[in-house]
Design a protein around this nucleic acid. Structure first.
Length: 546
RNA sequence: GCCCCCGUAGCUCAGUGGAUAGAGCAAUGGCCUCCGGAGCCAUGUGCGCAGGUUCGAUUCCUGCCGGGGGUACCA
């Protein structure tokens, strides 16, 4: 309803501008910070003042005089400050909005804008060398929520996990397992410091011992160790992700890019276009032709490709698979790689504006004041599983979404554990549970919401304030999706909960006045609709009881 | 050296080219005859520093300081 009001006002304002023969100009609607400044404010007069060289307040005055607004929608218009035009919503339009929310129900906040379009979100993409860490958790939750947001915009979304099981890391992993296996057989081994130290390596070795006995004692080929490790670790990773409600549609193995010829094809095209040359025994990509500072090696003198080549080939497949929007989510440590990939894609002739690269900053873990260094190799990481064990999936998801992704995140484990009961997610879920409880109570008294025409009875300040919050939801979803900023959603939901709790404190829902009871029950339902829809995007549960 | 991100309340973090910069946690004091007190109400301190653009900058630009991450024929 807020979006409808905005477009209605924009229509009216544009009409006035045309009538007055004033230039068309970009202006914005904003929700004023201060209540006295109304429900919606437009800055139109200020930029216009520069154009037509008149006093902005005078301009605002003239505009307002020419406006003919429907009093059922806009109750009052004021000019304030340097020239803001402030609009005050009428109760009527707010009362209508409650009905609108109830009629749309689970669809409220969904858009059709991207209907028929395909989007892919690539995230996590951790190689199967160990359990997911808290750091991966941030990316997992961000990626999944962004995918949810895109679905709410109408996209058909594919969640993809890209991994490499062929590199040096995997060889070390396999050999780490082999040594632990030999250790189980009673052999004295020397375990190198730069091998994977984690307990999970021993578990994989134990699994091999249970299934193969000592038959692998003299096995020098690492394949069986590698394959077993990869299989078990991936099972583990998927299980962890599933606990957070995250399910990938597709796992893409870097190795396939070699076997299906994509790597060769990219090299071929680069050579044909004169964008690759040999120097010092290596093959270089002429990335300077695409605005980069230096050319990059894509095939080492050893004959092995650098990471750039498969990355470029991989992204080529994303285009070839027909996605309209390609979202890559990386940690800040990969920030240097994407310009090369984008340059490579341009070189191949693709429209890189379809690629959206999102970089999130790291999570720094603290135990109290003590910083916890994280390294999978050294096994002094805190796993995502452990975090979920401690605080639960809902808190984990909510916590990672509370902050903007470009902000460094200091995560105090001690605090997260001791104060988990006071986490804002409970505040929000409590609002939902409370509404369910009211509805149950009403039901016990034989009262059920059914009167869609009772909303004219809603006029208390806390009622109208709550409705004003609720009507922001669709705009917020759209903006979060447009800007890839899921954290604004958690913030908004908390505001809805606050407005509800205030309404609950000030207004008695189930009373003697049957019509008023109907109106308030409907408002409760509308609130739970918005909360539940928001929770669905964020990926937390909407409990009926707590 | 160069590049990217960050610097806002005691702590963790939101936010905006504009009109009085917010939340949670922590602290103190209030609020239940009755729909869930995991709630509501009240009380305090702050935009790292210095310039610039602008009618107006915490927001944009430049420099500096501090923290994080990059800068490979590692990923």
């Amino acid at each position: 309803m807020l979006l409808q009001i905005e477009s209605y006002l924009k229509e009216q304002l544009d009409r006035v501008l045309a009538t007055l023969n004033w230039p068309e100009i970009a202006y914005q609607f904003d929700r004023p910070r201060v209540e006295a400044h109304g429900d919606l404010s437009v800055n139109l007069a200020m930029p216009l003042a520069r154009e037509i060289k008149q006093n902005p307040r005078q301009i605002a005055q003239t505009i307002v005089e020419h406006l003919e607004l429907n009093p059922d929608w806009i109750e009052k218009v004021e000019i304030a400050g340097p020239g803001f035009i402030n609009f005050f919503f009428s109760p009527t339009v707010l009362q209508q909005a409650v009905r609108d929310i109830l009629e749309r129900g689970e669809q409220y906040g969904r858009f059709q804008d991207a209907k028929g379009k395909k989007a892919q979100v690539e995230f996590v993409s951790a190689n199967p060398t160990g359990p997911l860490t808290v750091g991966h958790g941030r990316q997992a939750v961000l990626g999944d929520t962004i995918a949810n947001l895109l679905e709410w915009m109408g996209y058909e979304v594919q969640r993809e996990y890209y991994f490499n099981n062929a590199g040096r890391q995997m060889r070390i992993l396999a050999d780490s397992v082999r040594l632990r296996y030999l250790e189980l057989l009673g052999e004295t081994i020397e375990f190198p410091q730069d091998y994977y130290q984690g307990e999970y390596i021993r578990e994989i070795a134990r699994h091999l011992y249970e299934t193969h006995g000592d038959a692998l004692k003299d096995e020098t080929n690492l394949d069986i160790f590698k394959e077993t490790a990869e299989k078990l670790i991936f099972e583990d990773i998927k299980k962890t992700l599933a606990r957070l409600g995250i399910v990938f549609d597709s796992f893409y193995n870097e190795l396939d890019l070699y076997t299906n010829g994509e790597i060769d094809r990219v090299v071929q095209i680069f050579k044909e276009k004169g964008l690759a040359y040999e120097k010092d025994g290596a093959l270089w990509f002429k990335s300077t032709a695409f605005g980069l500072e230096q050319d990059r090696v894509i095939i080492k003198s050893s004959g092995e490709p650098t990471y750039r080549l498969p990355d470029i080939a991989y992204h080529k497949t994303k285009f070839d698979r027909g996605f309209d929007l390609i979202v890559d989510l990386f940690g800040a440590d990969h920030i240097a790689t994407y310009p090369d990939v984008l340059a490579g894609l341009k070189a191949l002739g693709y429209d890189t504006s379809r690629v959206k690269v999102l970089i999130h900053q790291f999570v720094t873990l603290f135990e109290g004041k003590e910083k916890v260094k994280m390294s999978t190799r050294k096994a002094n990481f805190v796993t995502l599983d452990e975090l979920i064990d401690e605080v639960g999936a809902d808190v984990t998801r909510w916590f990672f979404l509370m902050r903007s992704m470009q902000s460094h995140l200091n995560f105090d484990l001690t605090l997260a554990k001791t104060h988990s009961d006071e986490n804002p997610v409970y505040y929000n879920q409590y609002a939902h549970a409370r509404i369910c409880s009211i509805l149950r109570t009403a039901e016990e008294k034989g009262i059920r919401f059914e009167q869609m025409d009772a909303f004219h009875r809603l006029g208390e300040k806390s009622e109208l304030d709550l409705i004003k919050k609720l009507i922001e939801f669709p705009k917020l979803v759209r903006n979060c999706a447009r800007d890839f900023e899921p954290h604004l959603l958690t913030q908004y939901l908390s505001e809805v909960s606050t407005a509800f709790h205030k309404f609950y404190t000030e207004c008695w829902v189930i009373g003697d006045d049957a019509e008023l009871t109907q109106a308030r029950l409907g408002l409760c339902l509308a609130t739970s609709t918005v909360l539940a829809n928001g929770f669905r995007i964020v990926g937390v549960s909407a409990p009926e009881r707590m």
